[in-house]
Amino acid sequence: MRIAQVTYSTKPRGGVVHALALSEALARRGHDVTVWTLGRGGDQAFFRRVDPAVSIRVVPFEARDDESVGERIARSIETMGAAFAEARMRERYDVVHAQDCISANAVGPCLRTIHHLDEFTTPELVRCHDDAVRRPLARICVSAAVAADVERGWGLTPTVIPNGVDSARFAAAAGPSGDGDRARWRDRLGEYVLALGGIEPRKGSLDLVEAFALLQRRRPDVRLVFGGGETLFDYRDYRARVDARIAALGLDPVVLGVVDDDELPSLVAAAGALAFVSTKEGFGLAAMEALAAGVPVVARDLPVLHGVFGPTVVYAADPPSIEEALVAALDGAGPAAGPGRDLAASHSWDDVALLHEQFYEAVGGEGDHGAAVDLVHRHGAR
């Protein structure tokens, strides 16, 4: 099949990571895959090396400081839409698969993966979000909980195909071959709790700061480290609130920003614990990668995360319980690492690619998602 995977950024956000890994796995199965994306800020390539078997199309997207988030998203849709429409007839794709709201609104008839659902108040964003759920020919969700939310909210029945995980890469970073890289992080940071995804509302950063202030009374030598944080949205007000609270509490976290992809596994593997306290998630890829590295995870007490992780992580609902769970994790009193490693290893990208291939064949050009649901469930998707 000739497949177009469409995403909105070159940066390491969850949907982008998913699009690249899925595309590489589909290429390994013999498909002709092209990944389309917007090149924001002059980017001409993705945040990591991509298998040369996958073609890349980066659509230039100039930065503007004089537009709102709604205007930027509308311009993103228009820019991608114009470039993709010109190529679509020439390339004659068998499958067009959008990985986010912007892509789904830009490319016309498509299949869509809904990684998680957002809640917006800006009318343009509300409309964009709703159209990107309703208009696709068929939908995939990465967890049963998100699929249930789509069914409740829109009366639609997505197919559930979980995320894949590059578990071997994170397991290797935790093994003997990764000793030197882990030591370099620990020499730089000491003992640390890691949070990935940057400082933003959905990641529960303010609750984590409050929890860490409690933790430092008992474990003053442990540091809080934030990694990642590339986003389309303007979270400056939230970041200012977090910074003000950090100052008031006398904390000194390390904010790494976007971490080089080659360095990410060792950063995760060297952590004493991963704080995964998002208020909304669709699957939890960063937490699954931490489990692959044998790192204990403290997760927000959300139904979707219970459904994905079961008893392999510790759940917490508020700053005091987050603090208690982090202390237990640092002291080695959480769940054994083996089941978490096994869970991460069970999420093979090659298996995920097979399920996508079957989904594409089942829906064809008509978007028969009922057929896809039956077919994928017969092959054991969780």
Rank of each mutant, 00 (worst) to 15 (best):
R2Y: 10
A316V: 06
R72Q: 06
D66M: 05
A63G: 00
F61C: 01
P123V: 08
A211P: 05
R139A: 06
R64A: 09
R64N: 04
H356P: 03
R49T: 08
I140Q: 15
G272K: 11
E91S: 12
G30P: 01
R64F: 02
D94K: 13
Q5G: 02
A270D: 08
R382E: 13
G180D: 13
D262N: 07
A317S: 15
V222S: 05
A273N: 05
A132Q: 08
A247R: 15
F61G: 01
G367N: 12
E210V: 07
A98Y: 13
I73W: 04
A328Y: 02
S321I: 09
V352E: 00
E151C: 10
W185D: 07
L264T: 00
H306P: 10
H115M: 13
T159W: 07
G30T: 10
I56G: 00
R64Q: 09
A292R: 13
Y238E: 05
G257L: 03
R219A: 05
D43Y: 01
A290M: 09
D368K: 09
V373L: 15
H306Q: 10
A329F: 11
Y315K: 07
A145F: 07
L251C: 08
R2P: 05
Y235M: 04
R223H: 05
A244L: 09
A247D: 15
V54C: 00
D179Q: 15
